[in-house]
């Protein structure tokens, strides 16, 4: 009987932990999309916008990959284009954006690309949208004819959080103590 009670208590604990684990922390940002026709709309209605000239604004991420006199850049118009999570932005879903094919000279205007340590330049391009670009192996892209930096990028500092540091030290000490104890008990058994 005691055995069953213990199992029931354990099961309750596991279920409680599982439910706590499902609790979501602020998914669904209220950051407005900078575009009248955002990347989500373009992807959902590819055929309708194919061949149309669009103006698209987003954060330049990654890098400019220069290929001859042109370059590939990627502009994200998602919930993080103004501020990313390391800077304190609320969670707002996954990334969303558009690949842009632009002249290398225009791409050179972008000074900062978004990554862990940077919020990238926010860039506005105007160009032709292709649902399956014949020039680029069927990729979905925008061939931009103009590019302007709307907002310069910045360096992002992700300071270590003191609470995390305390947990790291505490758990490391505990792990060290257990290691010593395990070695001792193994040695005692051998002798």
């Amino acid at each position: 009987m005691a055995h069953r009670k213990l199992l029931a208590a354990l099961a309750t604990l596991v279920v409680a932990a599982a439910l706590a684990g499902c609790a979501e922390t602020g998914t669904g940002s209220a950051v407005p999309n900078p575009n009248e026709i955002g990347s989500g709309v373009l992807v959902e209605h590819m055929k309708e916008y194919d061949g149309m000239t669009v103006t698209f604004t987003g954060e330049a991420i990654g890098e400019a990959m220069v290929r001859g006199d042109h370059a590939w850049i990627h502009l994200n118009d998602d919930a993080y284009y103004e501020k990313n999570i390391e800077e304190g932005a609320s969670l707002g879903g996954q990334n969303s954006g558009m690949p842009v094919w632009v002249s290398a000279d225009l791409a050179a205007k972008i000074q900062v690309f978004g990554d862990y340590k940077h919020g990238g330049d926010v860039v506005r391009v105007t160009g032709v949208f292709h649902d399956a670009c014949a020039e680029h192996g069927g990729d979905t892209d925008i061939h931009a004819e103009s590019l302007d930096v709307v907002r310069p990028g910045r360096r992002v500092v992700d300071e270590p959080k003191p609470a995390k540091l305390a947990w790291a030290v505490g758990l490391s000490v505990l792990a060290g103590a257990l290691f010593v104890a395990e070695r001792k008990s193994a040695g005692a058994l051998r002798s």
Partner: peptide
Amino acid sequence: LLQDLDHVS
């Protein structure tokens, strides 16, 4: 389900 993959470390 990770969010903002383009800015992860």
